[in-house]
């Protein structure tokens, strides 16, 4: 369940950022070029998913694989958690897909449009790059979360829930983006990914966690306790 929730949240937040970029390109330069750029990136991501999953991860023995996955999840999770703590403490601008959408539109507005009848390569590259970078993180997180005992199913189910949710938001367009508590959600994803990271790293290094899989809960609780303490400490010196 924690795998499903973690994957759903992480994938939804990354896809929201990609969606913001694609919507900005579509609104500023046309839907067709935005969709062509995004589709190109999705094709590259499908290839990356195939290479990371069935080709690379399937060939590594379980214990070294758990170490690799643990380190990868810790790198992602601790970075999300670090940014989350800084945002909640008022030391960093809150995360906002809407702000990203507006910034991207302004940047595209400054670019000269192509001659009539010519493909808009600038728009395609911007949309493709946005989807590729955010999507690469999705591929790595889902592959890492799917390397646990429960297999890929919960991580893929979480990712599927996220895809449906983000597409629904995309259909209603950007209004709901403004209402999402993105900073809090990203902080929560940071806690979940970091907890999985420590858990897998321990399993890969021969640790027997007291309580078995329940260890994920007290490891996550430790991350919440320490990070909330940091939020309180850093918030004291934050600019008003």
């Amino acid at each position: 369940m924690l795998t499903l929730a973690g994957a759903a949240l992480a994938v939804a937040l990354e896809l929201l950022e990609a969606l913001a970029i694609v919507l900005a390109v579509a609104a500023e330069r046309g839907r067709r070029d935005a969709l062509i750029g995004a589709a190109g990136a999705v094709a590259l991501l499908a290839l990356a998913g195939f290479l990371v999953g069935p080709v690379v991860l399937a060939r590594i023995p379980l214990e070294p694989l758990q170490v690799v996955i643990g380190v990868a999840l810790l790198l992602f999770g601790l970075e999300w958690l670090r940014k989350g703590v800084l945002r909640l403490a008022g030391r960093r601008t809150p995360s906002s897909a809407l702000a990203e959408y507006l910034e991207e539109r302004a940047a595209l507005h400054a670019l000269a449009p192509p001659p009539p009848g010519r493909p808009d390569w600038a728009a395609r590259v911007v949309a493709g790059k946005g989807v590729l970078l955010e999507g690469l993180e999705v591929v790595l997180i889902v592959a890492a979360l799917g390397a646990g005992d429960e297999g890929l199913a919960p991580a893929l189910a979480g990712a599927a829930v996220a895809v449906v949710a983000v597409i629904a938001i995309g259909v209603v367009v950007h209004r709901p983006l403004a209402r999402l508590p993105e900073s809090h959600l990203k902080y929560a994803v940071g806690v979940v990914l970091s907890a999985f990271g420590v858990f897998f790293l321990g399993e890969g290094l021969g640790v027997e966690w007291p309580g078995g899989d329940l260890a994920l809960l007290y490891v996550a609780a430790a991350f919440v306790a320490v990070s909330q303490l940091e939020v309180t400490t850093l918030a004291r010196g934050a600019p008003a």
């Binding site: 810790l74 601790l78 670090r82 970091s194 858990f199 790293l201 007291p210 430790a222 320490v226 990070s227």
Partner: peptide, 19 residues
């Protein structure tokens, strides 16, 4: 039985240092 807690302490220390 206890190595996991050492790894957890390492990860928490890393987070605090990065902040």
């Amino acid at each position: 039985p206890a190595g996991g807690f050492l790894l957890l302490a390492g990860a928490l220390a890393t987070l605090m240092a990065a902040l």
